[in-house]
Design a protein around this nucleic acid. Sequence first.
DNA 1: TCTGGGGTCCTAGGACCC
DNA 2: TCTGGGGTCCTAGGACCC
Length: 396
Amino acid sequence: MTDQSWRAPILHVDMDAFYASVATRDRPELADVPVIVGGGSRGVVLSANYLARKSGVRSALPMTRARRLCPHAVVIPPDFETFGQVSASVMECFRRVTPIVEALSLDEAFLDVRGATRRLGSPAEIAEQVRTTIHDEQGITCSVGVAATVSVAKLASRRAKPDGVVVVPPAQVTAFLHPLDVGELWGVGEKTRDMLHRLGLVTVGDVAHTPVQTLQRVVGHQLGGHLHDLAWGTDRRALTPRAGPHEPDRSMGADETFARDTDDPEVIRRELLRLSSRVATRMRTAGVAGRTVTLKVRFADFTTLTRSRTLPEATDVTVEIHHTATSLFDALGLQRARLRLVGVRVEGLVPRETVHRQLVLGERDHGWADADRAVDRATRRFGNAAVRPASLLRPA
DNA sequence: TCTGGGGTCCTAGGACCC
DNA sequence: TCTGGGGTCCTAGGACCC
């Protein structure tokens, strides 16, 4: 297989057990111990090293179950600041290989290396160079999938784990894809997998040989067409590098699970204020404003609902977001139902300078926006705890 | 003490406008 | 008098990803 057969070789680079690897890389005493990175009592597993995985611990598993499966595991709380720093260094390393890098998350990225083969060698050789560099510079391992499309490269990197490389040349794509379970496909989760299985579509090959119209009737127009492409390895999604002038987020939100379920309206209202303030601060830092405020409520039995309201004008003002969220909450008319979580999200974000507020006579928004900016300045100088609404102050 | 927190995209129905 | 379709916005929910 020569390099010329690759129209545009794509690398998918995925760190192995990223959070756990970073958390233990400077702690040799944890090298031979099962390690779980995860949150508090009501949290889930964010990452587990391969020793812990031997006991059945997986990402997203409730911590309570993880501890039961692996009682001797060392549990480390996540340190996202460090994860972010390591991630930035890793992405920088990728950009030394090619400018066409699409970061999918902190710990994985696609690299289009079509412009790098003359300089650095075959895609497989580039993959090994990347792995060596990451290991030498960051002290962690990664796995790389190489293919002509992003979706196949992504599946290949999973097959390469841990600490390996898998190359799927164009001529071998269907031989690689078709034996896989449909649930392996990127975008097919538990529900869709079950639905396809019930119809007798178990492998990717089964899906490939099903008429598109049939798939679309079962899983919807969009996904049906997409599945067919994935099953033949023909999706041609191009990389969208985030390096340059990247498009703003479409929404920003914050939600939090209470340490204990609560039915206290005052506790809930205060939490909505905290979350609104957090979201609005991030929006102002990013220089965006949004029109649609969405409230999320999760009950003790885990059922979840959302309510949203679209405002006449986009806002980044804490008080407006909080007011909208509480008004949506009040409209639910909950009679002291026990809540597990509340959340606030603002959607339809646009750059703030494109928002021209219509000043209504007597409106006091101006004052609130000014107050927010004063809070932002104080927070930047004195830290997060410096300024907060009176209702969020703890009684001494 | 089962089930986090950050997102994206799609679907479907109703309102409303032309 | 009766019949109509398309486009866009809004809302709610759901599936999925890391």
